[in-house]
Amino acid sequence: MNWEGIFGGLSPASFFNFSFLGKYGGYILQALGYTLLLAVVSVLLAILPALLLAIMRLSKNKLVKTISGAYIAIFRSTPLLVQLSIIYFGLFGAVRIPNTWQLFGFIPLSRFIPGVVALALNSSAYVAEIFRGGILAVDIGQTEAARSLGLPAWPAMKLVVLPQAIKNVLPALANEIITMVKESSICSTLGMAELMFAAKTVAGSTYITLAPYTVVAVIYFCINYPASKGIEAIERRMRRGDRK
């Protein structure tokens, strides 16, 4: 498609000057891959720590409860950008990952790993609260029934409460991935070539100042809106299943 020919006449400041798509379309699609990978991998990595944090938060032991509470408070009350910078320059300033290690040939691990770690640590604080809500939503009678049969606390949690809680939290967990698709745009500040970074790069090298952002906005929307609608539909179906 001749993007240059169709849109070349528009002003560089036009919302709709898509003349760069011919040359940079592939680059932007690659950046979309980067964004999705960041979001999905971070949330998946966040699940186990989040589960641990949630169970710690529900523990009767004051110290354990406080540690988990403090972690959640810190990560929820400071900006992600600040967390990302501290982790990138602090933690991964000390632990260097060679620049030559790449994922799929276009994702340098020296940037991807700190990004994913920061997003995952941040996400685990939010997912922990999701899990905590999910666990508390399971009737206390379930735990009592399991304990009355002689099951110790952890097996009762693992075999009886968690399977029911996980079902409750799956929609919220999927929503967290959507949040992360958006939040991961912050990684552009540290040079990770995801969607937002791609838009900035294209704008910088073509002097088309606005349309690259329009394009990535549309891409974000086309990913997130159908996904959230899909989750809502699944949620409705699950509720119907429960009522039976």
Binding site: D139, A145, S148, K167
Partner: peptide
């Protein structure tokens, strides 16, 4: 307690069967 609870069956007012 777990050892002793095994020998004490309990039936709850609201069943508390495991729905899953």
């Amino acid at each position: 307690l777990n050892l002793h609870r095994r020998k004490m069956g309990m039936v709850f007012q609201h069943f508390n069967l495991f729905p899953h």
